[in-house]
């Protein structure tokens, strides 16, 4: 089981902040494809992954990264702190 978190407009487009999923996806990119095939709202949110960032277990990562051993994946737009 993997926890998937969504923030900012990704959260708004998908319509929930967090969900738990059973997945065989080996990489972030494969997980994104799996999510996109589920429902339109995911396809809309993940239409352009170059506009998104991903964190694995709360560390910034990238879409080609492996999900082996990962417990928490977060998707969000580029950060706007400060």
């Amino acid at each position: 089981m993997i926890d998937i978190l969504y923030f900012a407009w990704v959260r708004e487009r998908i319509g929930l902040p967090k969900e738990r999923l059973e997945t065989d996806a080996a990489t972030v990119a494969a997980l994104v494809e799996e999510l996109k095939s589920r429902e339109d709202r995911y396809a809309v949110a993940f239409a352009d992954t170059s506009a998104l960032r991903v964190a694995l277990d709360q560390e910034l990562s990238d879409f080609s990264a492996s999900l082996v051993g990962v417990r928490e994946v977060a998707f969000f737009p580029p950060m706007t702190g400060g």
Partner: peptide
Amino acid sequence: KSRAPFWKKEVAADGAEWVA
């Protein structure tokens, strides 16, 4: 500004918009 996970949304009378 760009590596701490914060996201700002501006809410005005005529609508709301995420800061890019």
